[in-house]
């Protein structure tokens, strides 16, 4: 146990501890949770020199302002994020995907995410967090996970249990690319919708609304007409499922989604596009593109290879 810790001067909007999430609990009503943007989570730990599933701090829009106390520690931030390291006599403008060090009294000011929602802070070491069902991931709706299942709050002290001094200069040249189309496999209730509704779904543009959080993303656009029934008998759902309730506006289920849902499913976002989907801030325009299962499987293999390649490029 070290004496290192962070004092939370400003918590930010939605700052939580996250890791890869928890499995095998959908049947009791507990979703997967975990870092929303999986690749940026993986990269944060890789640059920090941590094990793959080490807890990190996830923030949305505005991040936290933290004051560090203790012996020198390394950290990095992933995503598309503006942040400053404030030292006694200088202010360093930070770059993502690059390790920096903090010393006694230094402040880390995570100002905002740019044209995206989520960013990640990993330290070379471990935060002191509680684990539930093998994961620290915070689900603020069920109050499950680290920090008693709550967001990180003002004046809270975040303890660091151990640190390791990896090469402090580790960095990666990477820019998050934008996505034009979200690729989707037809849902199990695809035929609940009118021919025109299905056409609109794959041809027209939809806007991400402000009603978007870790549970789901609500979209607005042309209304999708249901010709069978606006409810189904409630059944299991998974992240990426696109439900269309009676009002005709699609809702995409995200990592903290309810495990059971009763609205017809028009489609499911493919796994390789999920990280980019969750980063679309309110106001973004998206189009859905139909894809079949075998192409989705190939795209996932490519996504995985690209992540591995990025890790190998960290210097």
């Amino acid at each position: 146990m070290t004496k290192n810790n962070f004092e939370v001067i400003r918590p930010g909007i939605n700052t939580t501890f996250q890791d890869l999430g928890r499995n095998s609990l959908y049947h009791i009503g507990i979703p997967f949770s975990g870092a929303m943007d999986n690749r940026n989570f993986i990269l944060a730990n890789a640059i920090a020199g941590n094990k793959e599933n080490t807890p990190v701090i996830e923030f949305a829009y505005q991040g936290p302002l933290l004051k560090f106390k203790g012996e020198k520690i390394n950290f990095n931030i992933t995503g598309n994020v503006s942040f400053n390291v404030i030292k006694k006599d200088e202010k360093i403008e930070g770059n993502c995907y690059e390790n920096y060090s903090l010393e006694e009294g230094d402040q880390l000011d995570i100002i905002s995410t740019n044209k995206s929602i989520y960013g990640y802070l990993a330290i070379s070491g471990n935060f002191e967090v509680q684990f539930q069902w093998g994961s620290c991931s915070t689900n603020t709706k069920a109050n499950v996970g680290a920090n008693d299942g709550k967001k990180i709050e003002k004046e809270q002290v975040i303890k660091v249990t151990d640190t390791h001094s990896h090469n402090s200069k580790r960095k990666l040249d990477y820019i998050n690319s934008k996505i034009e189309n979200i690729r989707v496999i037809k849902g199990t209730n695809f035929n609940y919708f009118s021919e025109e509704g299905k056409k609109k779904f794959f041809e027209k543009e939809f806007t991400v609304t402000k009603l978007t959080d870790r549970m789901g993303m609500r979209l607005e656009g042309p209304k999708i007409e249901n010709i069978v029934d606006t409810n189904i008998k409630s059944e299991g759902i998974i992240k990426g499922v696109i439900q269309v309730p009676a009002d005709g506006n699609p809702i995409i289920m995200l990592s903290d989604h309810g495990t059971i849902g009763g609205y017809p499913k028009i489609g499911v976002v493919i796994s390789s596009d999920y990280d980019k989907l969750v980063q679309l801030p309110p106001g973004s325009k998206i189009k859905f593109k139909e894809i079949n299962l075998s192409d989705a499987e190939i795209l996932f293999r490519l996504y995985e290879m690209e992540t591995q390649n990025l890790i190998s490029k960290i210097k």
Binding site: K233, E235, G236
Partner: peptide, 22 residues
């Protein structure tokens, strides 16, 4: 297999695509 979700008359089985396929 990462999750199994029973409901009234459906069973959803989620899996890790790095380990198995459909």
């Amino acid at each position: 297999i990462t999750n199994i979700t029973p409901s009234y008359n459906k069973l959803i089985i989620s899996f890790d695509m790095r380990i198995v396929n459909f």
